[in-house]
Design a protein around this nucleic acid. Structure first.
Lengths: 385, 385
DNA sequence: GGGGTTAGTGTAAACGTTTACATGCTGACC
DNA sequence: GGTCAGCATGTAAACGTTTACACTAACCCC
C-alpha cells in the first residue's frame, strides 16, 4: 500500500504538498496539483485513516448504539442514519446488541477513539443513566430517551400525542371498552403510549381500567398471547389498541384463530405503521412514525450540535393517525382498497426504493440521496479537516 | 484524555511496560502489572485506537457493505453479523446504501485503512465485478454472490433447492398451473429461485410458461401488482409462488381485495420465512432461510479465512420448507393453529429475544450470546494483537 | 533599490501507540 | 567467582499523516 511519501517522490514534491492537495488546504500551484493527482492515481494512493485520525483526533465516524432490537422499524431507523451520515461524509460504526446498561457502557467504551460522536438509543432507565456517564467523552444524540438526558441533544417520537389521537378516534367510533397491549416495561416509548391511552380515556370521560392493560413486549407472540387473555374477559372489550404493529398483528392472528371477526366484533389498532400493515386483512389502522426520518434527523442534530453543551435541543417527531380497515370505519376501508390499487398501478417496477418514497416525507430522502451521489462524484473528499 | 505516558508516569514505569500490561505481552512482573492497572483505572485510560491501528495495521473492525435494502430479512442478517462480530471482539462499520456498482466501490474505498476485512453482499452482476477489484486490498466474504468470486470466501442460500422443494410441494398438492412472481432482475437470489421454479416444473413433467412468470422487485407493492395482473389470466393459475415473503403478502392482499379466497381458489407461497408470516391469514407457507445465521456465519468464515487465497470456501446455507395454511394443505392449517397457540402460551413475557429463540437454530445464537457476555466481563480485551 | 507582502514550497515536530533491541539484575551452574 | 541464561524493564525507532514554521522568489509600492 503506497504512502504519502511514495506519491511525493513520484510527483517530485514534498509530502506537505501532497497533503495539501488532498485536503484542499491552501495554497498549492496548479501544476503541482496536477502532478500530485496523476501520481496518486497511478499509485492508487489513498490517505491512511488511522494516521489521519491520530493527528487530527477526528475520525469522521459516528457510533450507533442500539438495543438488541429488530424488525422493520429498526431497520428503517438504521437506513435513515446511514443515508444521512453518508450524505455528510461520515461512516457509522454499529453496535446493536446491548441488552442491558453494562453491555451498553462496554460497547460505548470500545468505541472511544474510534468515533467522533454517538447516536444512542436509550429507551430504558438504566441506559439513560449509562449515557450520562459517557457524555464527557462523546457528543451524544439520544434517540427516544425515556427522560431527558442533560447535556445531550435528543430526538423522540410524539408517542403520547399519537396514542391519544388513536384512542380518541376509537372513542369517536363509539367504543367504550377499549383494551391496550403494553410494550415492554421500563421503555420510554411503551410508557408514553400507555400514558397517552389513559389520558385519552380520561379526557373523554372514561375511566382507565388496569385489567384492560395487557402485558406485551413488542413481539407478535406477546400480542397473540394478550389477545387470548383478552378473549376470556366478559364483557369482551370492543376495541384493542396495541402499543406497536407487531403486537397488533399477533393479536389479530389470535382473534382469527378464535373465530372473532376484526373489526366487526372487535376493532384492532397498532402503532408505528410499518410497511406491511397496509397489506393485512383487514389493513391495520395505526399511528405512523417515520422511522427513517428519526434516524436521519438524529444525524442532522449531531451535525448541528451546539458548541455549548448547556443549551441543547430536544426534537419531537410528530405522528399521524392512519385510518384503515381494522378499526371499523367502513368508509375508510373501501377508500383504502381503491387507494392501494391505484398506488400499486402507478409505481414503476424498476423503482427499487419506491416503498419509501411512496410514504411520508419523501422529500427529505430524495435530498439525502442527491447529497450521497454528489459525494460519490468526486473521487475524493476534500473536507476532511 | 490521558495517554499511555500519563499512566506510565503515574505508575512509575516506562510506557513499554504499560503497553505490555494492556496487550498481555510477556513478561511483566506482578507488582508492575498491579500498579499499572491501578493507575489506568484512576486516570480512566483507554488505549487510543488510531495509534494502535497505525502501528499494527489491524483495526479490529469489519466493514459491512450491503445494497440499499431493508425489511426483516436484512435486519436479521445485520443482527447476526453484529452478534457474531461482537463475540470475537470486532466492531462493524456499516454502509448499506449503495444502489449501484460505483457507489459500492466508492464505499469500499472509503473503508480502506479503517477495516481489516469486508462482508459484502453482491447480488447483482455489477457488484460482483466491483468486488473483484477490491480483493487486493481487503479479505472479503461475499454474501449471496450471483456467481462465485474468485479468491473470496462466500456464503449463500440454497435458493435453488428451496424453490424446487416448494414447487414440488405445490405439484404434490395437485396444482398444475403454478405462477411465479420473480424478484428483481439480475440479482442472484431472484434468478436462482426462478431457476428452481422452472427446474421443479420440468422435473415433474410440466412445462415452464413465460407468461406465468410475473415481474416483481421484492416489495409488497410489486406483489400486489403482479397478483392483479395474474387475475386477468384465463384460466387462472391455481397456485402462486412468490420469490419472497413480502411479495407474497402483497399478492395475498390483492387477491383478498378481489374477493379470491386463499388457499381455496388459489394457493400462495413465499420465500424467506420472515417472522410475521406465520401470523397472516392464512399463515404463509414458505421456505425458511435463517438470515441471522447467514450473517453470523459470514463472520465465522472471515475469521477462519485461509491464509492462501487460492483455496477458499463457498458455504451454502440450507433451507427448509415450512408448510402452513396458505398452500391449502388443510391438515397443515389445523396443526399450525394449535402449534402457534401452544407456543404463545409457553413463552415467558420477559424473554425479550424470544422471537428468535423460538425459531430454528437457537443453539448457535445462544452460544454467540454467551461469548458476548464473556467479552464484557473483563474490563479490557487482551487480544488486540 | 529597499522594504513589505504574498504565493508556493519544504522541513520537522507532533499524534499515541508497538516492538526490536539494549541493559541490568538475579540466580544457577561449573 | 566467573559465565551464562533468562526475566523484567527501559530506550528509541517506527507507523503515515497534518501543520506550524521557515524559507525563497516574485511582485508591488514608495
Amino acid at each position: 500500500m503506497s504512502t504519502i511519501r511514495d506519491v511525493a517522490r513520484a510527483a517530485g514534491v514534498s509530502i506537505a504538498t501532497v497533503s495539501r492537495v488532498f485536503n484542499g488546504t491552501n495554497p498549492v500551484s496548479e501544476v503541482a496539483r496536477r502532478r500530485v493527482e496523476a501520481a496518486a492515481l497511478e499509485l492508487d494512493y489513498w490517505p491512511n485513516v488511522a494516521a489521519r485520525s491520530l493527528i487530527g483526533s477526528r475520525t469522521h465516524t459516528l457510533g450507533v448504539l442500539l438495543p438488541d432490537l429488530y424488525g422493520e422499524f429498526f431497520s428503517d431507523v438504521i437506513r435513515g442514519i446511514d443515508h444521512a451520515a453518508a450524505a455528510v461524509n461520515h461512516q457509522i460504526l454499529v453496535a446493536s446488541s446491548h441488552a442491558n446498561a453494562n453491555e451498553f457502557l462496554s460497547a460505548a467504551r470500545s468505541m472511544r477513539g474510534r468515533v467522533d460522536g454517538l447516536i444512542a438509543m436509550a429507551s430504558d432507565r438504566a441506559s439513560a443513566a449509562a449515557i450520562a456517564k459517557i457524555t464527557r467523552y462523546f457528543s451524544v444524540v439520544v434517540l427516544n430517551p425515556r427522560t431527558p438526558v442533560s447535556g445531550c441533544n435528543a430526538i423522540s417520537v410524539a408517542n403520547l400525542a399519537g396514542a391519544v389521537s388513536m384512542v380518541e378516534h376509537l372513542v369517536q367510533l363509539g367504543h367504550r371498552r377499549i383494551a391496550m397491549i403494553q410494550g415492554p416495561r421500563g421503555t420510554g416509548d411503551a410508557e408514553q403510549r400507555l400514558r397517552g391511552y389513559r389520558k385519552a380515556l380520561r379526557k373523554t370521560g372514561l375511566r382507565p381500567d388496569p385489567v384492560l392493560e395487557y402485558e406485551g413486549d413488542f413481539t407478535e407472540a406477546s400480542g397473540y398471547r394478550a389477545a387470548l387473555e383478552l378473549l376470556r374477559r366478559k364483557p369482551r372489550p370492543t376495541a384493542l389498541f396495541a402499543a406497536n404493529d407487531y403486537m397488533a398483528i399477533g393479536a389479530m392472528s389470535a382473534l382469527r384463530d378464535a373465530g372473532i371477526a376484526v373489526p366487526d366484533e372487535i376493532a384492532v389498532t397498532g402503532f408505528d405503521d410499518i410497511a406491511i400493515v397496509e397489506y393485512l386483512s383487514p389493513p391495520l389502522t395505526t399511528v405512523r412514525v417515520d422511522a427513517y426520518d428519526l434516524g436521519a434527523r438524529a444525524i442532522e442534530l449531531w451535525m448541528n450540535r451546539p458548541d455549548d453543551a448547556s443549551h441543547c435541543q430536544h426534537h419531537v417527531l410528530s405522528t399521524e393517525l392512519v385510518v384503515r380497515g381494522s378499526c371499523g370505519s367502513t368508509r375508510a376501508r373501501a377508500v383504502h382498497v381503491r387507494e392501494r390499487r391505484r398506488r400499486a398501478q402507478r409505481q414503476t417496477p424498476s423503482a427499487a426504493d419506491s416503498r419509501h418514497h411512496a410514504r411520508a416525507d419523501s422529500k427529505r430522502h430524495a435530498s439525502a440521496r442527491q447529497a450521497v451521489s454528489r459525494r460519490h462524484r468526486g473521487r475524493r473528499s476534500t473536507d476532511f479537516k
